[in-house]
Design a protein around this nucleic acid. Structure first.
Lengths: 203, 203
DNA sequence: ACATTTGTTAACCAAATGGTTAAACTAAAT
DNA sequence: ATTTAGTTTAACCATTTGGTTAACAAATGT
């Protein structure tokens, strides 16, 4: 009784689980809810994934390696540093619009279980920072940008792009604005964040 | 049988609940665990706080209004903008060292229940951005800093300071460093983040 | 055709969990 | 000394929850 369609039962479950886990986290998600979301019996979840923990891990890894290529855009693109920062900043927002809960989910679950990151590191698609490091050092040596540790610059790029979406409910409260105005601010950032960073480091 | 000591049973429960909720979140925390942490019977939790939800709300509000004064340091300090950014950046790290789980907890629970922020806004100690807005506009008019929306600058200051601690497990993985080296990076940031921001906006 | 493997479900189970109850205990007021 | 009001506990309860079982259905191989 193979479904053999492009939506197998297993991937249907995984997608349903992704949706639920992203919103509710490991401890907030319920197996019954995931089964309902997938439109199947709860026992089938255990047939395909044995336990909640294993289903969660499958979801987590799959979602992390959806985010990884986005990070690689800052790390392993062959353009110069400024262009790289510009394109990352411009692209990140469209990724978040498609997957609004994903970055927060990754960060939240890594805080709950920090050791989990060691599992990810061994994967060949895990983002590697060494090219970025060399590039920053190179451009510092060439007098294009001010001296800064590549790690600090990387953290800053990530912070300025990722944080606003993770903290959106808080920011909407602090700035006393609604969703619509917040989204406008985020659109402005597609260019402004890159300018901000470039201004901070260029000589 | 009033305890009338500086540690009443009620505050003892609240403190235990703060510790547990911060680490595990609303859905991950267990009433029994909180009772154990407080060294009392589980029924006492319900005697003092009626339900998990009400206990959680008490904890959340209390923790939020521990964070609020930190934010007000960027918003309602009477020094000039550059000094304000410097002192906030320098102070924030020492706050996070005392309360490493607090900012992440606030952001996570506001994501889980974004409407909750409306409850906070009415409170008199809720951070207000209007002074900061005027100050930024003023310093732009005086030609001290480049034109930038106060909201964007505020988001950037917050992002650069708050994000690294929230994303620490992820960053340690991406940068391939351990806790010790990560903390070194964070110490460097006490001055570097302010310089980064000031370089980005000064004329 | 038929046996075997794979996929799916309803019903069930044990443990965990939030919450309740009734009784016991304590300190102060009468 | 007795009452009274607040505090604390052990035992209990109903529901939820992750997980299992056994039977059934659909493919698949021979």
């Amino acid at each position: 009784m193979k479904k053999s369609k492009d939506t197998t039962t297993e991937s249907e479950i995984l997608n349903a689980a992704k949706r639920i886990f992203q919103r509710k986290g490991m401890s907030g998600a319920r197996m019954q809810e995931i089964a309902d979301e997938a439109g199947i019996n709860k026992a089938l979840l255990h047939y395909y994934f044995r336990s909640k923990q294993l289903l969660f891990e499958a979801v987590f890894k799959s979602l992390f390696f959806m985010l990884a290529p986005e990070l690689n855009k800052v790390l392993n693109d062959d353009s110069n540093l400024f262009d790289k920062i510009k394109s990352f900043t411009a692209n990140y927002i469209s990724f978040v619009i498609k997957h609004p809960f994903l970055p927060n989910f990754i960060i939240q679950e890594l805080n709950r279980n920090p050791e989990f990151v060691t599992t990810l590191i061994t994967n060949e698609y895990f983002p590697n920072i060494s090219t970025f490091k060399n590039q920053v050092k190179e451009e510092i040596a060439q007098g294009i940008i001010k001296p800064i540790k590549p790690e600090q610059l990387f953290i800053n790029v990530l912070a300025l792009n990722v944080f606003p979406f993770i903290a959106s409910p808080l920011l909407e409260g602090l700035l006393a604005i609604n969703d619509k105005d917040f989204n406008k601010l985020m659109e402005e950032r597609t260019t402004q964040v890159a300018d901000f960073i470039i201004n901070a480091i260029k000589i």
